[in-house]
Design a protein around this nucleic acid. Structure first.
Lengths: 224, 224, 224, 224
DNA sequence: GATGAATGAGCATTCATTCAT
DNA sequence: AATGAATGAATGCTCATTCAT
């Protein structure tokens, strides 16, 4: 037939977005078929093409849209000034809350980068780098003021983001901890990490240089 | 026809494993076709079935094999006793080295869990839980001895693993840092994280409970 | 919405006709999509259906309209009486001029007959046969008067039409020859063909019966 | 299932070629679906791709293969020397026989050029130009020796080829005329055309320059 | 152990067409 | 007269898998 009475573009568009998010998060972009997507929305496959030009564009729209939202939300949430500790706490609390609130989208943004075609990938990677830089600046600033002690702020940036973003791989809304609880725990861990080793405790730590030797042997066995 | 001159089972098998690892790491399991795999190895599609019963089994073999290696290598590397700090350092150094050495396989083990069929998934998840428990035990022990101060050791376990495992998403062998360098940096961060907040510094931190309120507003705007 | 400001039925209709002609001549009827047609005209697909009931009817309208024009123009141009030579010259000059002036439409009328549904095809074929008959009558008349010497006037009809109609497959308006030039050349060739062999020259021609034998061997070799 | 007992690549390939020839000649390349083709051959659609990489390549293979055959057959059939008349007779007899014997393939080679992608088209057009040149050389030679009287040998080349090639649009094996009959008739017409006007007859022909004027009026009415 | 030829289901995408607005 | 949103069938093509050779 043709247009169904009461059908509406924007409503269908949002339904497609939501269904796509769910299906990609569950099965992955490559494994999601547009048949499935259409069925989930309750329309014919062909109708999807009123809303995107092809599957790749759909993925890109989803990811790009999310990155724009993420940046806008971070800029609104982040303290423009204050101590590095205060800003790092703020960043962490924001990041945790955002990842909890939109776990599916966030997850896709990490896991489906490889499904983006080169041009689209480049656009998204640029946006991600901006986001990383905002954390990196806080860490650099904290190191400069002496609030933080970090051997390598680039590594620390990646480590903190990986740690926080990992949340969206296991978070379940009905879980043991509330968003606030997660924020408290993760801001604590991130701050501790950033403040760095409290050498005062003074006990001799196992020489890290000694470890690789043993591991290497073990590893070689494992790898071979 | 039949067997080609100079062909050899074990050699072919290893070639398939390596090519599969590369293709899955690059494109993902669902997006890798057995055509591609066969072409990469230089055999016909049909010949692949001399080495596995179906695509799913191939993935499972890859992941399971890796998990077995990982456990064996960890058991060989981990200090059986000693302070929690020493053991955590050891665990971290091992984990970093292993993820650097076998980044592709490790990456697949995280990213393709969703491609496993239920039974296979259950088997792998059980193995992963064992691995996590080994870290969890170290953290629990450290908290008991007072070496560590962690609000929630389960969260800390997940956070540390996410942080360390993130390495395999960006690590390049020709990068700026050696394995030893990475080990030093990451053991430092992990230890700092585990030792927890040094409250001695005593400055008033931004009340984390205050953050969500602001963020929520920002987020709602971003999400809506 | 509804009617767009400044839109106008007849103008749109002519735009569709022209765009359709171009697209069919370029890509063929089957390969032309109504999406393309609508885009070329600058309207939505659905709007096309205000101008025809379906794609087939559009093709038929185009072809039938052209055939009517062709007949009307021929009847206006053809000498009602006179010598067969004069009438053949007139026919040829007309046919050349018409094919040059409306090369696209003419081309479609030859090439898209197979895309017509049976009833539509029958109607067009009947019109074409009428056209052929007009040439056939001239040739028959010329043979009767002795002006022409043709072994088989039906074959000659088809041969002359094929020869003349071929023009529209390569003619370019900016080409080397003007319409008048083409008319002069082609009327010359057609007349020579119709007048037939000048046996006066009397040399022994290669016996045509001898040719097939050699060719057959060659052909069999080529085909096999 | 898998390989069917007794199936054989070359046999299937030839069956596909033959079925494709028929379907393209009947419906056109664009209108022939690979489903149809597979059904005609009696295999699954996917199996077609063991014999070509895509539909376009299939068309190109068909056309290119035919052009190669055509050239080989012509070279074998054409008299290397002799009078222009003898060689033109030979060319014509060959061309007629070939077009009768392989009407379907020949027809496709003319009608589906537009379905070829640019590179493929260029390759075929080059081959066709070679073929045309062989006829053109005969005509040029005949004009030089005085055997032929042609106002424009390029036009004559195109005219003769169009006239002869038209055969494949209406030829039916069970028709009134044998191949030999067609050869006799067409060699006669072609020779007459090439020998040109026998001005000896001396009657005043209708001035061709007069025709366009009348036609133009008629045409304008028809075109407008 | 490997090939080459096949299967049948599934893929993303496009098609002509419809019709409430 | 035109739009925008839909349909349902069809398209070219790829997929994992099978199996006689």
């Amino acid at each position: 037939m043709a247009r169904i009475a009461g059908s509406s573009g924007p409503r269908t568009e949002e339904a497609i977005r939501r269904a796509g998010l769910k299906l990609i998060a569950t099965h992955g972009y490559a494994a999601m078929s547009l048949r499935q997507l259409a069925a989930e929305v309750g329309i014919q496959q062909g109708s999807l093409y009123n809303y995107f030009r092809n599957k790749q564009e759909f993925l890109f729209d989803l990811i790009r849209g999310h990155m724009l939202d993420l940046h806008a939300a971070l800029d609104a949430a982040l303290l423009p000034e204050g101590s590095a500790e205060a800003r790092l706490t703020c960043f962490t609390a924001f990041h945790v809350a955002y990842h909890v609130a939109r776990a599916q989208e966030v997850f896709i943004c990490y896991s489906e980068l490889r499904s983006l075609e080169p041009d689209n990938l480049a656009a998204v990677v640029a946006m991600r780098r901006d986001y990383e830089r905002k954390l990196g600046d806080i860490l650099d600033h904290g190191c400069a003021t002496g609030e933080f002690r970090l051997a390598d702020t680039r590594m620390a940036t990646l480590a903190i983001l990986a740690m926080l973003s990992g949340i969206c791989t296991w978070y379940k809304p009905e879980g043991r901890l509330s968003t606030e609880g997660l924020q408290a725990i993760f801001t604590g861990m991130v701050l501790a990490l950033a403040r760095g080793e409290a050498p005062a405790r003074g006990e001799a730590v196992v020489d890290p240089a000694a470890v690789p030797a043993r591991r290497r042997g073990a590893l070689r066995a494992g790898v071979a």
